[in-house]
Amino acid sequence: MNIQLLDLKAQYEELKDELTSAVLEVLESQRYIGGKKVEELEQKIADMSNSRFAVGASSGTDAILNTLMSLDIKEGDEVITTPFTFFSTAGCIARLGAKPVFVDIKYDTFNIDPVKIKPAISSRTKAIMPVHLFGQMAEMDAVMKIAEENDLYVIEDAAQAISATYKGNKAGSIGTAGCFSFFPSKNLGGIGDGGMVVTDDEKLYERLKIMRNHGSSPKYFHKYIGGNFRLDPIQAAALLVKLPYLDKWSEKRREHLDYYNQMFSGYPEILVPTINDYCVSVVNQYVIRVKRRDELKEYLRKNGVGTEVYYPKPLHLQECFKYLGYQNEDLPVSEQAAKEVLALPIYPEMTEEMLTYVAEHVVNFVKNN
């Protein structure tokens, strides 16, 4: 068999007619910036996230960047976050001249370890940015308690966790703001780049809308230096087609997770994802840990199974962040994870035969190596 890590063609075939009709509607309207499609999607994402407001963005990265700018995070400020995440999380902080302050992750969930946050707070700290990695939310009670005690913003990087819950609370609804990505590989993926910010703070909401349009309000009058962070109507139209299917797709991912876990039970060499009882994960990725990760990855490739390493090098050790002064073994849990993690295919359209094929090859490698 040939099983890709993600096969978007299967999803497209199911929605082809709806997507074509939605995109053609935008073309016929000739409204390519803003408009009803964007506004409708913003309202629906706000409702789904149990948030008062939502502001579209040109990408998940720009959702984070706009949020930081709208909260006036600037040169000399510090934002505490995790090094075990996609580059955007810390890259946006650094782009504003602020300093990413990395703290280690929890071994079991890969999410930021709240115990490590408080010692990292300084007089320059302005915000904490937890990442809800692989579809499961971080320990938000502890994060929020620390933030409230120290008068800090909390920006939820929920790029991989749209509609996930923590103790019944939706991703993005707990902190000052939450940021989503609609990159095509996400559970709710567009037909290009896109993102969204949700918040309950009306003042922040108004600022986000201004900042995404070059800081202009009214037109051609600029109180702030913003950016071009707008979500376009073609993306909004496609996402509106996909949104009603999101819960079904996430449920299929959870079913696939359970199936994999069952197949891997009895093999202590394969560490399967830990999902906390009080969390509902949307399983954006199914990530195992194995000691001989690179050999397993190559073995699976030779047998037609696509995999990916999220992430092979933690951000604190990336060359571009060398100026921050981190060294090997400074954040050992993140560094160990980078050597052991491997994402397996888990998209909703996978059949039991496909899941079995992947799992049996993982087990076969472990048994014979």
Rank of each mutant, 00 (worst) to 15 (best):
N328C: 01
L271V: 13
P345A: 04
V272E: 02
S334Y: 01
K313G: 02
A343S: 15
Y299S: 05
V305I: 15
Y286I: 05
T307R: 02
R289P: 00
A337I: 00
V341S: 04
E308A: 14
L296M: 12
D277I: 09
L271M: 12
P268I: 03
D294I: 07
E295Q: 14
T274A: 12
N284D: 15
V280Q: 07
E319N: 13
V309E: 10
Y310P: 02
Q336L: 15
E319V: 14
T274F: 14
H316G: 06
R293T: 11
E295C: 07
L324R: 05
E319D: 15
R301V: 00
E298P: 02
D330F: 07
K339R: 14
Y267K: 08
L271E: 15
A338D: 04
T307F: 04
R293K: 13
K339E: 15
Y299Q: 08
Y299F: 15
E295T: 02
E329V: 02
Q285V: 03
V283Y: 10
V290L: 14
V280I: 15
P332V: 14
D294Y: 08
Y286K: 03
P273W: 10
K291D: 11
H316Q: 13
E298Q: 11
D294K: 11
N276E: 12
E340P: 02
E298M: 06
A343D: 07
E319L: 11
V309M: 13
N276M: 10
V309Y: 03
V290Q: 05
V341E: 08
Q318M: 12
P273Q: 08
K302R: 14
T307D: 10
K297V: 11
A338K: 01
D277L: 12
